[in-house]
Design a binder for these strands. Structure first.
Lengths: 185, 185
DNA sequence: AGTTGGGCTTAAACTATCTTAAGTTTAAAT
DNA sequence: ATTTAAACTTAAGATAGTTTAAGCCCAACT
């Protein structure tokens, strides 16, 4: 699945494929396990082969904000921590039993040097990630909670069934109580 | 300035530099001129050599939302429109008399093929843009208007003086009246 | 079977933010 | 310099969202 994901944007020969896979050990993650800890430096980039994850931030008052969901076939990490070696702002938790490939920061750097085509792959990946986040910002500053909720279930219908409403509320930036009242309308 | 900007992440030889510059005509843009029109496909990537810009979206009710500011030394476009050839969601307007380099989509593709090192440059550029937008999303869903306003003037002190409060309010996602009352506190 | 805890709903009281509208200040244009 | 339009402020009343608290349902544990 990870090769197919990369194959969407670039094509690798068999030797490059095996080289890549050798630097990407996979691990299985049971439901509720946390693979990125807020406050620690995160030096691993993950690819979700199966299952799904939720990334959330906990503020000083204990309020939880869901930064992103990572369903299968997604790359995920705290990119700021991964790139700049600063403490992570988020924790990443498995929503269900999952399988991920792990790419360490040093292997990431090595891979980009050994297989320069991967620069293009990640360039496109981050370009799309940037677009996605920018659209989310626009949603956040211009739409009502109801519109954002409808957008969410339209864009991620599968996720919407898998996660709790409390988590959806914290993704939208409202309380679960208010989301509940919005849904009733 | 644009060569210095690129030099932050990769190094180009003189021939590459001249090849690059030959594909990046520069234009001067008078204050208030619009160089990206919401609704039209945007096939140009801009680099702000001097001056500054504001990108905003206008919704059906005429409400304006500021998606981003682009001060000098920034790359800017409607990335979704540029990459996917869909109508632009934003208009880009000069805040003052400015100078920009323009890179067309076809020259962009050509350059990346001719100078593969640029893949790395843009990979890093988009990686940082993604991080920035993700932090802004977290701000939007977890902070109060007051906190977001203070963050804004702390992160962009120069911009905060150059733009109107109406524009800052529409960047934060609140009305100018409310921002005014927040400032009074 | 009984208990515990989490997630969902409802409701009341409270706070944040919007809308509208008026008055004032600032900046642009003549 | 005068005029005009836009930006900023203020304030009152409306709507959106939070907080707290209670109750219900369902799954997990004892």
């Amino acid at each position: 699945m990870i090769l197919k994901n990369i194959g969407k944007h670039i094509s690798l020969n068999p030797s490059e494929k095996s080289q890549l896979l050798s630097l990407l050990p996979s691990i299985s993650v049971p439901k509720k396990e946390i693979i990125i800890d807020q406050g620690r430096i995160c030096d691993t980039l993950f690819f979700v082969e199966s299952g799904s994850f939720r990334a959330y931030n906990l503020n000083k008052d204990g309020k939880e904000s869901t930064i992103m969901f990572a369903p299968k076939d997604w790359w995920v990490t705290d990119m700021n921590s991964f790139l700049n070696k600063v403490p992570s702002l988020l924790s990443l938790e498995a929503l269900e039993n999952s399988m991920v490939y792990t790419l360490s920061r040093s292997n990431f750097d090595d891979l980009l040097n050994k297989i320069p085509k991967l620069e293009r792959f990640f360039r496109i990946l981050f370009q799309k990630a940037y677009i996605r986040e920018q659209l989310r910002v626009l949603d956040n500053i211009s739409l009502t909670t109801e519109e954002r909720y409808l957008n969410f279930i339209r864009k991620y219908p599968d996720l919407a069934e898998k996660v709790t409403q409390k988590q959806i509320a914290s993704y939208l930036g409202v309380t679960p109580e208010f989301l509940s009242s919005v849904k009733k309308k």
